[in-house]
């Protein structure tokens, strides 16, 4: 290829990749625009604070009331519970697989855990409904086990494969030189794992946690089946809750296109979008701060 042609080729590749990058940002902006366009009409009936802090969600009442606080708390409670379960157990499993387990065990276990990620969420919901909920009901002697607690467990298990898989990759990527240096200084295996390997992999572990949380907060089907779906602000983790996603899925079919209820559901979409956006931004900031402090290259 002569120089002129090579130059054209270089530029072509550059522009193509540029277009792809711009497109993904554009799609994101369009989604946000669409959500706002469809949901904006709501705010001529309900004020923004009234929507976010309103405690009554009664779309069928006369006049309808759209206070999203029960749904927002529902989502936050369930996601927090799921996050605690998925992140603590998930990172624990990843540490075991990467640092303790023999190679053969690691490979089989990792394949199986990644397979878990492929199970459709409705199946998790079904298992939660028919197996886990009765079990919890009997064990804790509850009137009904369809509550935030059960939903958190189901969601936690669903988010587990993501957390384990990415955490294990991050731990595995810690250079062998670090481990050897630590061992050669007379550190035990355990000290090496907790003081060197885990801190060195922290950015990957953080990413794994955030993706796990993202999976939990966006999950709809399973949580709709096991959370109990009461639009009330929960007083304990054993109260039934309804999440933002479950509410949208459950009610979208009953709405009139462009009607007030329809707009309210889009309003919920905006809230959900903002929450995930906020989580991502906080992660980015925390990430940037820790890596500049440590000067990781």
């Amino acid at each position: 290829m002569d120089k002129g042609l090579a130059g054209i080729y270089e530029n072509l590749v550059k522009y193509l990749l540029g277009i792809v990058a711009v497109t993904s940002v554009l799609i994101l902006l369009l989604i946000f625009y669409f959500l706002i366009r469809e949901g904006a009409g709501l705010f001529s009936h309900v004020s923004l604070p009234g929507f976010i802090f309103g405690t009554e969600w009664l779309p069928d009442a006369e006049p309808p009331r759209f206070g999203a606080l029960p749904l927002i708390t529902g989502s936050l409670v369930v996601t927090t519970g799921a996050g605690i379960i998925a992140i603590s157990i998930g990172i624990g499993i990843a540490v075991f697989l990467a640092e303790v387990a023999p190679r053969s065990v690691r490979e089989v276990a990792k394949a199986v855990i990644e397979l878990l990620a492929g199970i459709p969420s409705v199946v998790y919901g079904f298992l939660g409904l028919t197996v886990l909920a009765p079990l919890i009901k009997d064990m804790l002697n509850l009137p009904s086990a369809l509550c935030a607690f059960t939903a958190s467990i189901v969601l936690g298990i669903m988010a587990l494969p993501t957390v384990v898989s990415i955490s294990e990759d991050a731990l595995d990527a810690v250079p062998r030189e670090y481990r050897e240096a630590s061992l050669a200084l007379g550190a035990t295996k355990w000290e090496t794992t907790w003081r060197i390997v885990v801190p060195s992999a922290r950015s990957g572990l953080l990413a794994a946690s955030m993706l796990g949380l993202g999976r939990a907060i966006g999950e709809t089907m399973a949580v709709l089946m096991v959370a109990g779906n009461a639009t009330l602000i929960p007083h304990s983790i054993f109260d039934p809750v309804r999440t933002i996603t479950a509410d949208i899925a459950a009610e979208m079919g009953e709405t009139v296109h462009g009607g007030l209820h329809y707009q309210a559901l889009f309003g919920l979409g905006i809230v959900l979008f903002s929450i995930t956006f906020f989580i991502n931004m906080v992660t980015d900031i925390v990430f940037a701060r820790t890596s500049s402090k440590r000067g990781a290259s």
């Binding site: 050897e180 240096a181 630590s182 050669a184 007379g186 990781a296």
Partner: peptide, 26 residues
Amino acid sequence: LRKKVGMVFQKPNPFPMSIFDNVAYG
């Protein structure tokens, strides 16, 4: 044993932490 017989590796391998923490690790 490794506390008595220390080792320096081929590639410099400081831990991703401060200079102080590296030396204070042991």
